[in-house]
Computed example of a mutant assay.
Amino acid sequence: MSALIRFITRVIFTLATLVLVLCLMGVAVVTMIGLLIWSLLRGRKPVFDTSGFARARNYRAGQRGAAPKPMGEVIDVEVREVSEKLPPQT
């Protein structure tokens, strides 16, 4: 008898957990859609920052203390002199 009660309790808690997770995911989706609509109404392009995913991927890959990769060849900028006198405004 106690095994049946324990089984029913586990099923109830599992279903309650599933409902809670689905509700939280629904709240997250509704919030993201609301923020997306709000940014579009204000005339701004929505920004999706996924840099956290790249950092987590690098962290798991063991690159947390690795030296940065070389950026490539450095190109010098050509220098121009600017006269101190401003041209006349017309």
Results as ranks from 00 to 15, higher is better:
A3R: 14
A3D: 14
L4N: 10
L4C: 09
L4D: 12
I5A: 07
I5R: 07
I5M: 05
I5N: 08
I5D: 08
R6T: 13
R6F: 14
R6N: 15
F7Y: 15
F7P: 00
I8D: 02
T9H: 14
T9Y: 02
R10G: 07
R10N: 11
V11M: 09
V11S: 06
V11N: 04
F13K: 02
F13A: 09
L15H: 04
A16R: 01
T17W: 11
T17N: 02
L18E: 01
L18M: 06
L20G: 04
L20P: 01
V21D: 00
L22A: 08
L22C: 07
L22I: 13
C23K: 05
L24W: 08
M25D: 01
V27Y: 05
V27A: 11
A28P: 01
A28S: 15
V29H: 01
V29L: 02
V29Y: 01
V30D: 08
T31I: 03
T31Q: 13
M32H: 10
M32N: 14
I33A: 12
I33P: 00
G34H: 00
G34S: 03
G34K: 01
G34T: 11
L35E: 06
L35D: 10
L35S: 05
L36H: 09
L36N: 08
I37F: 09
W38P: 00
S39A: 09
S39W: 06
L40A: 03
L41M: 10
R42G: 10
R42T: 10
R44M: 05
K45Y: 03
P46M: 04
P46W: 02
P46S: 03
F48M: 08
D49E: 14
D49A: 09
D49V: 06
T50Q: 10
S51R: 14
S51A: 08
S51V: 12
F53N: 07
A54Y: 06
R55I: 05
R55G: 02
A56H: 05
A56T: 05
R57H: 12
R57K: 11
R57M: 13
Y59S: 11
Y59V: 02
R60E: 10
A61F: 01
G62K: 02
G62N: 03
G62R: 03
Q63S: 09
R64Q: 04
R64H: 08
G65A: 06
A66M: 08
A67L: 07
A67Y: 01
A67V: 09
P68N: 03
P68D: 05
P68L: 03
K69R: 06
P70Y: 00
P70W: 00
P70E: 07
M71G: 04
M71W: 00
M71L: 07
M71T: 04
G72M: 02
E73C: 04
E73Y: 06
V74L: 04
V74R: 07
I75H: 02
I75Y: 01
D76T: 09
D76A: 11
D76W: 05
V77C: 03
V77N: 03
E78K: 10
E78G: 09
E78L: 12
E78R: 13
R80W: 12
E81S: 11
E81W: 14
V82I: 13
S83A: 15
E84K: 12
E84L: 14
E84G: 10
K85F: 15
K85L: 15
K85Q: 14
K85E: 15
L86C: 13
L86E: 14
P88N: 13
P88M: 12
P88S: 05
P88V: 15
Q89V: 15
Q89C: 13
T90A: 11
T90D: 11
T90H: 03
T90N: 07
